[in-house]
Amino acid sequence: MVYCSRCARYFVNEHALEQHQDDSSQHNICHDCDKDFATYHGLKQHWINARRHHYCQDCDEHFDDEDELEAHYEDSHFYCEPCNKLFDSAHGLHAHNRQSHHYCPDCRRLFQNANNLQHHLRSTLHAGSTVPCPGKKCKKIFVSGAALILHLESGTCPSRITREQVNRVAAKYDKQHVITNPARMIAYGESGAGQSVTTWATERAWNGDRYECFLCHREYRTLAALNQHLASPAHEEKMYRCPRGYSGCGADEQCNIRRFNSKVQDYLGDLTSNMKRLRL
């Protein structure tokens, strides 16, 4: 004879006891964990809370692993993955994301941090492109003056504008030295005129294994690659600074506030407008 203490009943053998437990509402068994609960609610709470179970309580459905459960949540429910929460409606999830996350309500996208969100909001998707390139044969339009300047400095503009030409325009029109360091603008002068120094390497840069930059000692496989490095802004005098007067830090070309601060964006817009007056 075997005894069921919860029901205070005897059974002739183990098989009869198991049959009783399966049929009785007094027994709600998790066979994976070998636990018996007095109510079905208690069993469900166990499935919800126990890490070994991957259970959707809304659908009363089990899944093989956490990935399958999350995929089910995303496909069939209004699910916030970072918070691991389900919502009754799309509106509820939308309101939660607006209050709790770095979230674009128009695109309904989450971002890892505030900077990523702001970068997205300033993209062409939201801000639109309103700053045309003044270079000849270039039809590109940019979202900001800073983006245009990066384009011009890169040397990829069809007009063949170089960083040196951008520096000359900055030196000419930045009369108040908002973004330029006057102590480092001797080569360009207040009018933007002046001559720049071009540096290049010859076969003498070969050190027996690679072509070596005599300024920073970086090594390159080809002489052309070394000269491309020397022609880049890598070793140019850093004539730009983060503007203190516009909530900047004053550092020389070390932070990105000029790309994001609205006042600095306006200033760069005025600067790039002046470029249109030149024959670029």
Rank of each mutant, 00 (worst) to 15 (best):
T199M: 12
I257C: 10
L230G: 06
N256M: 06
M275E: 00
E219C: 14
Y240W: 11
R218S: 11
E236C: 10
G208E: 12
H217S: 05
E253I: 01
C255Q: 05
R204Q: 10
F260W: 05
N274H: 13
W200C: 05
G245Q: 09
Q228I: 04
Y240C: 09
P243T: 04
Q228D: 15
T198W: 01
S273R: 13
R258W: 08
K238D: 08
H217G: 02
S262N: 14
T202M: 03
A225D: 09
A231P: 03
I257F: 04
A205D: 01
R258Y: 03
Y220N: 01
M275I: 15
F214W: 12
A224C: 07
D209E: 13
T198L: 09
A225I: 01
W200H: 09
N227I: 03
H235K: 06
S262C: 12
D266Q: 14
L215T: 09
C242Y: 06
E236H: 11
E236N: 14
G208H: 09
R241V: 08
W206N: 01
L230H: 06
A201R: 02
D270W: 12
L268F: 14
T222L: 04
R221A: 15
L268N: 07
W200I: 04
G245S: 09
G245D: 12
R259W: 01
A224V: 06
E236T: 07
Q265G: 01
C216H: 01
P243F: 04
G245I: 08
K276R: 15
S247R: 10
H235N: 05
C213M: 07
R221L: 11
R244Q: 14
V264P: 00
Y267H: 03
L268T: 06
L268W: 08
Y211D: 02
G248W: 01
C242L: 07
T202N: 05
D209M: 10
K276A: 15
F260R: 04
